[in-house]
Structures are given as structure tokens and as C-alpha cells.
Amino acid sequence: MKKAAIAILLVLLLTGCWDRLPLKTLHIVDIAGIDQDKENGDIVLNYVVTKLKNVGQGSGEPSPKITVLKGHSLVEAVEQGQYTEQGPFFGMHTGIYFISKSFASDDPVQELTFILKAPYTASNSPVVIINGNMSKLLKSKIGTNKEFTRGLSDFVLSIEKNGIAPEVTLMKLILSRKEPLEDMALPLLKPSNSSMELDGALLFRQGTYTGKELDKDQVQMLMLMLEKYSGNKRYTGNMSRKDEDKKSDYGFSVKKLNSKIITHPESGELPKVSIGVRMRIYVFKFGESVQPFKPEYVNRMEKELGKHLEEDAAATIKTLQKANCDVLGIGQQLKAYHPNIWKSMNWRKDFPEMSIEPNFDVQILNSEE
């Protein structure tokens, strides 16, 4: 009996925690929007915190609130949060780090690095970029759509999950500074009606913006070459055809995709690289033709579509080389599987000059036998 009483007493005494935080005083950040004041260079931090009003059983009305904090650095701006009536703020569940193009262009990693060691912060959340004034954008979107925060979070997760855009977390961006071969493309969003849409991607080399970017179609091509796709994703576009004066629309979904980087050594010269992409697709539109997908017609479609995709892929690769940004991971492949070739190269000098050729092998599955 005495042992039981002691055990109960210990449970009561040990349930507390020295750094515990009352739930009622917590302000969990949904979006951390980071911008840079163009006039004085100060950092502008926009915290979006959503709470529920009119809470009932299993329901409630979302009520997002924006708090704007400023400082000469991001650390200083974060610190201001403890002096406001809306604070303190805790980012352990931060859904998205929303950074402006101006902030991303001015050594963002230097400002962001402290987050890896800061308490109550989330470093494994995705990072996306917008072009424009962060405060005005958030105020406008949230003012007209109370579900904006949730919708934006769902949208960002969906484009990454479905292979529409690269997935880049805050931790990955910060750690890339010390990784010589860790280049990346950060998704760029733009306003669209009451929400946002993908507008392309900014190219980063070791955590630094290269000044170059991919458009939306090039991002799609990049994801195909990276073997990132989803069966739910539909690919559409238009292309020139030999038998038609105007461009023809096409549309397909991918059933199976394989991509492989192949290195061809060249004596006394830089190695040549080919990127082989094998696609098994279902076509739902191809030009204005209404004829059935007979084998001879399908064979011609496969060759024309493959050539068109190769041209788009070559243009995308050219942009990557101009930016000296190896998002495709060619350098990593060379270092791992061709160490002798790698040792003979000056990677950052040689990458923009290399011959990199895409080869697309397209097979249409819904042909009529």
C-alpha cells in the first residue's frame, strides 16, 4: 500500500516539464512569409496563424491572422515576435516557408541558417517562392479567402507529390550551401484568382540564386528527366507536324517512366552525356485527326512526339547549363560511377561546355491492333 501511494505521488510530481508551454498562449505558425524591403534592405517577416472561431463538435470557422515583423536580419525580425501582443510564435508546425524572389536573390541561406538550431521551429517544411510584395499578397488573399492558408498548403504538397514541381525543404536548401554538387530548382508561384498557381522555378547553385529560372513547361520537362511523375498527371502542349501547317495540340498521361544518365568517355575531351527517357503513355489527344489509333499511325505519332519532347528537353538542359546548375545530378553520377573521368574535370568550369543530349523513347499503349 505504501509503495502504491509513493508511485501515485511521483506521477503527480513528475507530470510537469520545465519548458512546457500553455496551449492557450501558443501561436502555431501556418505560413512564414519572408520578404526584403527594397528601400532599406530590412527583412520583413509575415506570420500567418489560423485559429478556429465558433468551434462546435468536430467543426469550426478558420480565422487566419497576419502579424508583420521587421528587423535588420531575420533573427532580429523573429525576436520582435516576443514583444507583440500576438506573440509568442512557435513554428514547429509551420506548413510552408513562403519567400519572395527579392529575398531569395540575396543570399537567403545566410539569413535562414539559424533556424536549424532554433527551438520550436520546423526545418523540414517545403520552401516556395513568389514574385511580388509578400505582405500585400497575403493580406489580399487571406482577406478574400479564409481558407487560403489550408488551400495553399494542400496545393504545395500536391504539386510535389504528383511530380509537378521539385520538392525542396528548408533544411535541404540550407544544407546545400556546403554541398558542392547539391543544385536545385525552387518552385515559383504566382497569384491566380483567389489562390496561387505554378509559374516556373528558380535555379540555385549551393544555396545561391543563379539569376536564371525555368518556365512552367521547362519545369515539367525537368521532372520527366528526373523520373518524377504521377499517373494522375496529364501532360499537354502543342507541336509542329509535317502534315499540318499549324501547330497541333497533344495530351497524354504516363503509365511508366524510366530515365537514365549515360556517360560516353571521349579521349582527351570532355565526356558526352546522354539522358535516356523511356515513356509508356496513354494518348487522349493528338492533333485534329479523328482517325483511329492504327499501328502505322501510332508509329508516326511516337516518332513525332519523341522528337518534340527531345527539342523541349534540349532547351531545358541549355538553360541549366547557362545557369551552371546541375539539377539533373550528372556530376553526382560521374563522381560515383566514373571516378577517373571525374578527377580529370573541373566540374563548375566544364559542366556548361559539356555535350548533354536527351533521347526520348515513346510508346503509345492505347493503339488499336
Score class of each variant (00 low, 15 high):
Ile261Arg: 06
Val273Ile: 15
Asp245His: 13
Gly231Lys: 09
Ser274Leu: 08
Lys233Asn: 09
Glu266Ile: 04
Leu270Asp: 07
Glu269Cys: 07
Ser267Pro: 02
Val254Arg: 02
Lys247Val: 00
Ser248Leu: 12
Ile261His: 08
Lys247His: 10
Gly231His: 13
Asn238Glu: 15
Gly231Thr: 02
Gly231Met: 05
Ile261Met: 07
His264Trp: 06
Asn258His: 14
Phe252Trp: 09
Asp243Arg: 12
Leu257Phe: 08
Tyr235Phe: 15
Ser240Asn: 11
His264Leu: 14
Ser240Asp: 08
Lys260Val: 10
Tyr250His: 08
Leu257Arg: 04
Lys255Ser: 07
Ser267Tyr: 09
Lys272Met: 10
Glu244Asn: 01
Lys228Glu: 04
Gly268Val: 01
Tyr235Ser: 06
Tyr235Asn: 05
Gly251Val: 05
Asp243Ser: 11
Lys247Gly: 14
Lys255Arg: 12
Tyr229Ile: 00
Ile262Lys: 11
Gly231Ser: 09
Val254His: 01
Pro271Asp: 13
Tyr250Ile: 03
Asp245Val: 03
Lys255Leu: 13
Ser248Phe: 00
Asp249Val: 05
Arg241Glu: 04
Leu257Ala: 10
Ser240His: 09
Pro265Tyr: 02
Lys255Trp: 05
Asp249Trp: 09
Gly268Leu: 03
Glu227Phe: 06
Lys260Cys: 09
Lys260Asp: 15
Lys255Pro: 00
Lys246Asn: 12
Lys228Asn: 08
Lys256Trp: 02
Asn232Thr: 02
Ile261Asp: 11
Lys228Leu: 05
Leu257Gln: 04
Ser274Ala: 14
Asp245Phe: 14
Lys255Thr: 00
Arg234Cys: 05
Arg234Gly: 13
His264Gly: 09
Leu270Met: 08
Asn232Leu: 01
Glu266Gln: 15
Met239Pro: 07
Asn238Lys: 11
Glu266Trp: 03
Asn232Tyr: 05
Val273Thr: 11
Asp245Leu: 12
Glu269Lys: 15
Lys233Phe: 04
Asp243Trp: 11
His264Asp: 14
Glu227Val: 02
Lys246Gln: 14
Ser248Val: 10
Phe252Val: 01
Glu266Phe: 04
Lys260Ile: 05
Pro265Thr: 02
